[in-house]
Simulated scan of single mutants.
Amino acid sequence: MQAPDGGTTFRAVEEWLARHPAAPSGALIRQRLCRHRGGSWIEAVSTVLAVLHDPEGFDPAWVEAVTAPRDWEQPADETNPLDHERAAIDALGPRITTVRYTAWARIAGCPTMATLQRRTGKLWSELLTEAGGTPNASKIKNRSRAEVGEYMTRFLAEHPGGSTADYGTWSRENAAPSRSTVVDRFGSWSAAVDACRH
């Protein structure tokens, strides 16, 4: 984990690995070491250094297993992508935006959205639906002016100022249509505010 000529930050280790063609990438090491139990890079480095400096403090069989040479080309035992989705649903609820999943996956040590999509060949909304979640309604196309107006009315009741900045946050939290959809249905933001303000 510690490069002879560098430090133990992820960047330092990644740069050292890049200079050695037979070595795995930093991203692959981080995925293999940190994704389980939601560990972090710092925790992985601390564990590795502890094993190197005091191997007797650890189970010998475990030390042998983790220090054995690895075939980095061989994929690790893969968890079903839907299991990651279900874990995210358990943690965040059924309606998960890609932004919320990305933040959660980083902390939980789970694959990125792009990785899950690549493994399955499916869109995010399809994966979320199959896992029992609810796709982000803001992605639903062809919303009527009346439906968009209902969201705007709710937004204005909570945010009388009607700023687009407030709407950006509110729309993500409430699975509402995007600002561009609102403008498309009403002609302009101010026209939507005027039409839906009670």
Rank of each mutant, 00 (worst) to 15 (best):
P4A: 05
G6Y: 03
T9F: 06
A12C: 07
A12S: 14
E15C: 09
W16G: 11
P21H: 09
A22P: 10
P24F: 10
I29E: 07
C34G: 14
C34D: 11
W41F: 05
I42W: 12
A44P: 06
V45K: 05
V48C: 15
G57N: 10
F58K: 03
A65G: 08
R70N: 10
N80M: 12
N80F: 09
L82R: 08
E85W: 14
R86Y: 03
I89Y: 01
P94F: 03
P94W: 01
T97K: 05
V99D: 08
R100A: 12
Y101T: 04
G109K: 00
T112R: 05
T115D: 13
R118I: 11
R119V: 06
G121P: 08
K122S: 09
L123H: 09
W124G: 02
A131S: 03
I140C: 01
I140K: 01
R143L: 00
R143W: 00
T153P: 01
T153V: 05
F155N: 00
T169P: 06
T169S: 13
S171V: 03
N174Q: 01
A175Q: 02
S178P: 02
S180G: 05
G187W: 01
S188L: 07
V193C: 07
R197K: 13
H198G: 13
H198M: 07
